[in-house]
Simulated assay, not measured.
Amino acid sequence: MNTIAAYTKFEILGAIRIPMVFVALLFLPTVGMLLFVVPALGDDPVAATLSTGSMCLFTVLIICSAQYGLGIADARMKPWGGYVRTLPGGPLPKMVSMIVMSSVFVVAGSIPLIGIAVIGTEATASFLDIVLGLGALVLAVVPFSLLMLAIGYAVNPYLVSVITSIAPIILAYLGGLFTDPNSTGGFTANVSPFIPTRGSAELVWAAIGDYTPNALSMVMLGVWTVVLAFLAYRAYRSDEGKRFR
């Protein structure tokens, strides 16, 4: 526990030193709220509530891309990153500290979006709904952190920034985060149940509004989580073999 606490303290201090990084991470979700949710769906209480959840999940995608994808790639290129991996305790303390930091970022990053929804839309959600929604967002960190870990360890570090820059937008689009959550037709609606983003989104929507998750989306989310966990583990072990053999 002392090792996990030390790693977590290190992550928090690193984030505090560069606060503008956090502001930059919130730029796209905030623009999405102001340009899509407020003018197009703001007058519909149900659609505005669910779409606010979508933009909060978009924040999760961006945070995971930056912290896990870019963070791991950056550590692979620096001597300090290699040294940290030789310390006692293995990868668990580092992973736990990153999850804690991601959860803090997700909760903090959702607050401005919720504020925009309260001021600029007819969104309705009780305090308990918001708490449950934030819990669902924290759970969503798991599959997307695994995805970005796999990318961060498996891909050339110089290419990771390109992939992690476009991956959140592609995942959000294919998962239906940029459309009305109640839409039942079109290309995105037919493809989205097979994308992990959709399953996570439906958990958030169910937490904050009157929405019943699709069984296929839930099954695929579970399958994706298992597959991504395996890929992340294999990528980590492969990179470890290359660096420390």
Rank of each mutant, 00 (worst) to 15 (best):
L149P: 01
Y153K: 03
K78E: 15
L177H: 08
A136C: 07
I163L: 15
L134G: 02
M20E: 10
Y233E: 05
A123T: 05
N182Q: 10
S102C: 15
I72F: 02
A40Y: 15
V100A: 11
A6E: 11
F144D: 12
M220D: 01
V223A: 14
I170Q: 00
P193T: 04
R17D: 12
W205R: 04
S161M: 06
M98A: 14
D44V: 12
G199T: 01
C56F: 03
S217C: 04
C56M: 14
K242F: 06
Y173S: 12
F178T: 04
S165C: 04
V155P: 10
V38P: 02
Y236G: 06
L132H: 05
F230G: 11
L26H: 02
L139V: 14
L139H: 01
I151T: 08
P193I: 08
I16L: 15
I99F: 15
G133H: 10
L113T: 13
V60I: 03
V219H: 04
Q67A: 12
G241W: 04
I151A: 01
L113F: 11
Y236E: 10
S145I: 00
L92K: 13
L28H: 06
L177T: 02
D43N: 05
F27S: 02
L231R: 02
V38A: 10
M55R: 03
L139C: 10
T30F: 00
V162M: 11
G120L: 01
A206W: 11
G186I: 00
I72G: 03
T49I: 03
V191T: 07
S217D: 03
T124M: 07
V223N: 08
I208H: 06
A215Q: 13
A229T: 01
P91R: 06
L128V: 15
S165Y: 07
L174H: 06
G69Y: 07
L203P: 04
R198H: 15
A229H: 08
Y7H: 13
P45L: 05
L228R: 09
V100T: 05
